[in-house]
Design a protein around this nucleic acid. Structure first.
Lengths: 118, 118
DNA sequence: CGATTATATGCCAATATCGGCATATGTCAA
DNA sequence: TTGACATATGCCGATATTGGCATATAATCG
């Protein structure tokens, strides 16, 4: 085995920061590839490759306009991510409701287990 | 280069479904490793390895209790994920506000570009 | 047709993963 | 001390990634 393919999931596809950047740009409106290339300052083949991954998980759609390919956002595959993290929202916003847990965290940081930093 | 380390980010750490499962279990309360092993039905070394990754990105904390190591959830590193996806929430909940985009998606699916299924 | 523009693909190197299995480390009990 | 229990680590194989560079494919223009 190995790590799951980046095209398995939105989870996996979006773990790559550049792909998140691309989505962020597209959220402002559709763009042809070369626009993205210019905005990102990355080599064109690399951008095309990232777009391919995003296409395969359905996060972007393409449309042909002359010799350009215009990419647009399709956020729906992000919903599972949203749904999943949303359940944890309280764990940081109301995190002092469970002081015991906080204390445990602090305690384990002071303890002697190689300080779990690795 | 290669793919970013799983320990780089919460984004990367959480791309692995088993690690999400572990967090889901811990969200119900802290647990020693063997509890998780039993609940997940996975080999113990594998669980320990996943826990290590989660520890390295700060998603879990450990506490020693006798010869057991009790793991607990720390959701805070998930906040960046939440913040990021949240911005896209409208793109699926209000997705018919931009009918043009929807039409483009449909159109590109009918078009002849190898149907972007790959 | 040939040239140019726009984008996608192919191949390569380097890397780090996940899972399997064996084993090290650590802790408590007799 | 010896042993049993709980957990972590080490090494291995197989795989797939990201980025680089060259090149293929596609479409438009003269």
């Amino acid at each position: 085995m190995a790590r799951a393919a980046t095209t398995t999931d939105a989870f996996n596809a979006v773990a790559e920061p550049r792909r998140r950047q691309i989505l962020d740009l597209l959220s402002r409106g559709e763009r042809p590839v070369n626009d993205l290339v210019a905005l990102l300052g990355l080599p064109q083949p690399l951008v095309s490759k990232h777009l391919r991954v995003l296409r395969q998980v359905g996060l972007v759609a393409v449309r042909d306009v002359g010799r350009q390919r215009v990419y647009s956002l399709n956020g729906e595959p992000l919903k599972p991510i949203h749904d999943w993290v949303k359940a944890y929202e309280e764990s940081w916003s109301r995190r002092f409701d469970r002081l015991d847990v906080v204390l445990e965290v602090l305690q384990s940081k002071e303890d002697s287990h190689g300080s779990d930093s690795d």
